[in-house]
Structure formats: structure tokens, C-alpha cells
Design a protein around this nucleic acid. Sequence first.
DNA 1: CTGAATCCTTAGTGATACTG
DNA 2: CAGTATCACTAAGGATTCAG
Lengths: 133, 133
Amino acid sequence: MDQAAAVPTSDSAPEFCRAREVLDRVGDKWSVLVITLLGDGTHRFSELKRAIHFITQRMLTVTLRGLERDGLVTRTVYPVYPARVEYSLTPMGDSLLDTLRALLTWSVGHVEQIDEARRRYDGLLDDTVTADR
Amino acid sequence: MDQAAAVPTSDSAPEFCRAREVLDRVGDKWSVLVITLLGDGTHRFSELKRAIHFITQRMLTVTLRGLERDGLVTRTVYPVYPARVEYSLTPMGDSLLDTLRALLTWSVGHVEQIDEARRRYDGLLDDTVTADR
DNA sequence: CTGAATCCTTAGTGATACTG
DNA sequence: CAGTATCACTAAGGATTCAG
């Protein structure tokens, strides 16, 4: 079932479909922040927790596990007491970092514009363009 | 509401915090696919529905509304019967397209590697690196 | 054709308490 | 310090039905 190659349909190209799995990870609530933080080097669990201080301990754990499972983050446990665990990006995670930074740059650069668009949309909910034909 | 936005992330930079709002949109389940599809030009609702055949009608509507609200997509209604509605990217949506394509490229290029990492992780759940110190 | 409305199921998230 | 376990709640998403 090869559709028009010009249109990157979610189902036409197998890879495109599979990409959804990856996008799901990047698109979750905390991964982008965690990866970005790890972009400047290794961090301990508590450091990440403190940095993203509105993340719960549980969610940080869940997020890190997911990233580790996907081979984007390395988890290093130091057998000391109290426990000491460090996280860092794998080479693959590092390559994703560049892309995420690009996305983050775009986001930061367009926050205002989007916010304005939302206000306008919420203001006049009948803003729809109507073409006559 | 999303008042938690009062507190950002790692470096507590306001812009970084606000970027989360944008990332939430990009990170949702369908926006990337819809934007990518609209990247090659205007499409009707039914065309998008057909292209992403595992999306429900409701979710396509919800996604498009969100994108429209954020000023990324333009909705044009043709007053004919049966109804005909066309969607296309705004200039801002178009600028995001480039970034998303980069992300998509990365995703497609690393699906295999991630999948392998997941299998390995799921296989030996004790794969943790242990450093002695 | 496009989409709104409703119901319903489940995944995601937070709060809290407990452990090596 | 770095988790795990449990409970409860919410929001996301799907299925279905109705309507302009």
C-alpha cells in the first residue's frame, strides 16, 4: 500500500509510523526538560529533582526510566551510603539534544506570538475565515 | 489552569518556562503528524482523516482546533453543501514545520536503535551500570 | 462532509508513606 | 539519597450518535 510519496502519511511509510513511538517519548511531559538538563553534563537524581522543582519524585523516576530504556540516558549507581545515582546522556541522547534545542529555541522565540493568537482566538471565537464559492 | 507555569525549569528562565506551553502542543499525540501533513499544502478535513487513518474524527477536530487557536493552522470554511473545510499552515506554522521535520528525521533515523535498546532493557532488567567508588 | 455532544475506559499524574 | 508502592483523581482518548 504505497501511497503518494509526496505526502508523509503516518501509515503510508512504515518508518513514519514507527517514528510515532519516538515522538511519544520526546513529547511526554518531562523528557525534553530532563534531556536538556543532561545536555550540559552528568547530574544526580537530586540535582535534577531540584532543577525541575515542580516535578514529583515519582515522575522524575518514571521519566528517567523511560529514557534509560530507550537508550537515551545512562544510569550509574554508586554503591555508597547514602545512595548516589548519576544520569548522563548516551551518544544517541546527545544527538537528540541538538534537535531538541532547536525545538526549544523555536518555542521560546514564538511563545509570545502563540500566546497572542490564543487570546485572540479565545476572544473572538468566530474568527474563522470564510471563503465564498 | 496551568498556573504551575509560575515556576519554570532548570535555570528558572521565564522564557524556558513558557516554552513548556509550546512544547505541550507540539508534544501532543497528533499535532506533529497534522502539521507535517499540512507541510505540503492545504488539505481538507476528510483528507487528513484519511491520511492518518488511526485518528478518530473527534481527535482530528480537537487537534486542529488547538493548532488553529495557537495560530499555527488556518481554517477555511466554504459555504457549500456538503460542507467543505480546508486547513493550511500559517507562516508561523510553516516555520515550525522545519523544526518538526528535523525531529521527525531524527526519529525515523533512530527508531531501530531505540527499539533495540528497549528490547535489551526489557530483556535484562538488571542492565544498570554499577560504578565502584 | 464536517463536526459537536455524550458516554465511558484507561493512561497519566500527584500525594503520601515506606525502604535499602 | 534514591527510589518503590499504593491510592485517588484527572484528563486524554475512543466509540457512538446526532446535526448543520
